[in-house]
């Protein structure tokens, strides 16, 4: 399987004026995070919790900056109040990359199974537009997601399956 090249991915984000990132790691983003931490075009700040990362990104936006976030879908459960009473309420645009755990490749990891089942319903319930990216269409999907993020001034989510950004 061909993965998205992390260098291409980060160049795309840099070209779209992102200089700052925060979040909580997932192994699905291992390659990307390794590249991100070495890349002088970005500052990556590791947060202790996903809702904290939403708070940091919101503050960064209010100060005039742009943030992309990285988290596992388990983090979607942690960000409920931050999304509903902060980013949706104040209309804060954020680009959130979320690993789509709990699908077939995670069949031996039952801890992800229920969140895998409810990931899309949770995003629908939070009223967050979302897309699933593939190696073949990621630039077109991200162009569209960023357009929606700007137009609606709200968070958007990109779901990333196993093998798309890291083995």
């Amino acid at each position: 399987m061909i993965m998205i090249d992390s260098a291409d991915f980060l160049s795309y984000l840099s070209d779209n004026d992102f200089t700052f990132s925060t979040g909580v790691p997932c192994s699905y983003f291992r390659n990307l995070l390794l590249a991100l931490e070495k890349d002088d075009r970005f500052t990556y700040l590791p947060a202790t919790r996903e809702d904290e990362a939403i708070g940091i990104a919101t503050g960064y936006f209010l100060g005039g900056g742009r943030t992309f976030l990285i988290m596992q879908n388990s983090g979607l459960a942690n960000i409920g109040d931050a999304i509903t009473s902060l980013t949706q309420l104040y209309k804060i645009p954020l680009l959130i990359f979320v690993s789509y755990r709990g699908l077939e490749p995670d069949k031996d990891f039952p801890e992800h199974s229920i969140m895998g089942d409810v990931t899309k319903p949770v995003l629908d319930a939070y009223q967050i537009p979302y897309w699933v990216i593939k190696e073949t269409n990621w630039k077109v999907v991200l162009d569209n997601a960023l357009e929606v993020m700007e137009e609606l001034s709200k968070p958007v989510c990109i779901l990333v399956k196993k093998g798309v950004l890291s083995e």
């Binding site: 990362a53 708070g55 503050g59």
Partner: peptide, 17 residues
């Protein structure tokens, strides 16, 4: 108005920006 528990993290992001 909401987001109980987040003022410090929002302040951190703002301070960085």
């Amino acid at each position: 108005r909401g987001s109980m528990g987040l003022p410090v993290s929002i302040g951190l992001g703002l301070a960085l920006a």
